[in-house]
């Protein structure tokens, strides 16, 4: 800076100006014009919308704008729910359904992951599996219920099969795509260091496919919840699905919605559990 090396000229030197001062009156401040288009967390907004929706729903019932038969107000649903808790039937129904979802989902998912892996690894398995999956996946499982009854009876086996088969195909597809999507260069890397086949599978392919497999779990868990209602069409005395079906048949709409509420809460709980699992397993992303 030449200013500092020159001798000061006290008379002509202008008063020191603060750096923030703009040089001329013609200048304008630069305005921020970015912003927006970014997802920012707004928890209160969701909560507020939720509260308003519930309040409006309750009010419409209280003010007799809508018949409580058609749309039971939240208070009636909670009352029905409370009744279920009080007489212990909620616990009994929930236990029955959770057992079916647990066993059915586990069986279907385990088989699906194995088949998906095989299809991702071996060309022969892929050549057989892809058309088979395309052909069998769209079959509505509910249409097969009479067959399940003939094959497996009306006990738990046919209920497990309904849920298991429902989650099997999406899991196959998710796992297959996940394995297929593992970067080839990582596999080549493993091979270039003489890693045995099984090690490549265990240490490279499996963790690499994990995000896709877990995303598949999210979908299959929801499908299991949907299918528990279908499964419990088969001679179920207890179960949230059986309860919902029964309430529907008897036109007890408050009970019906109470059961539906339990199902969605169950979905929420499972979703949260999966998010936690993802957080721990996929920390590296």
């Amino acid at each position: 800076m030449p200013d500092t090396t020159e001798a000061p000229r006290p008379m002509t030197r202008p008063a020191p100006q603060p750096a923030a001062q703009a040089p001329a009156s013609a200048s304008r401040p630069v305005r921020f014009r970015g912003g927006g288009f970014v997802a920012e967390p707004r928890r209160w907004a969701a909560l507020l919308a939720f509260v308003i929706a519930i309040a409006a729903w309750e009010a419409s019932g209280r003010l007799r704008l809508v018949s409580p038969l058609f749309l039971p107000p939240p208070s009636a649903i909670l009352l029905a729910l409370q009744g279920l808790v009080a007489d212990g039937s909620l616990a009994r129904n929930l236990a029955a359904s959770l057992m079916r979802i647990g066993v059915g989902w586990t069986l279907g998912t385990a088989a699906g992951v194995l088949v998906g892996f095989a299809m991702g690894i071996w060309s022969i398995a892929r050549a057989i599996g892809l058309p088979a999956v395309s052909a069998l996946f769209p079959i509505p499982k509910i249409a097969l219920l009479p067959l399940f009854i003939l094959w497996l009876g009306i006990g738990e086996a046919s209920k497990f099969a309904t849920i298991g088969l429902g989650v099997f195909f999406p899991t196959v597809i998710a796992t297959y795509s996940a394995v297929d999507g593992v970067p080839r260069n990582l596999i080549r890397m493993g091979q270039s260091f003489n890693m045995p086949w099984l090690d490549v599978l265990r240490k490279v392919v499996l963790p690499g496919a994990m995000p896709g497999i877990l995303a598949g779990f999210r979908i299959s868990a929801s499908i299991a919840l949907i299918l528990v209602v279908s499964a419990e069409m088969i001679g179920a005395d207890y179960g949230i699905g059986a309860f919902v079906l029964n309430a529907g048949n008897l036109m007890l709409t408050d009970q019906l919605l109470a059961g539906v509420l339990v199902l969605s809460l169950l979905g929420l709980a499972i979703g949260t559990a999966l998010s936690l699992l993802e957080k721990t397993l996929l920390k590296w992303r």
Partner: peptide, 19 residues
């Protein structure tokens, strides 16, 4: 009584000797 939702499923359970 085993609830099976509709007649086709009743028939299936009946034929299968489940009831």
């Amino acid at each position: 009584m085993v609830p099976l939702q509709d007649v086709p499923k009743m028939v299936a359970a009946f034929k299968g000797g489940q009831v």
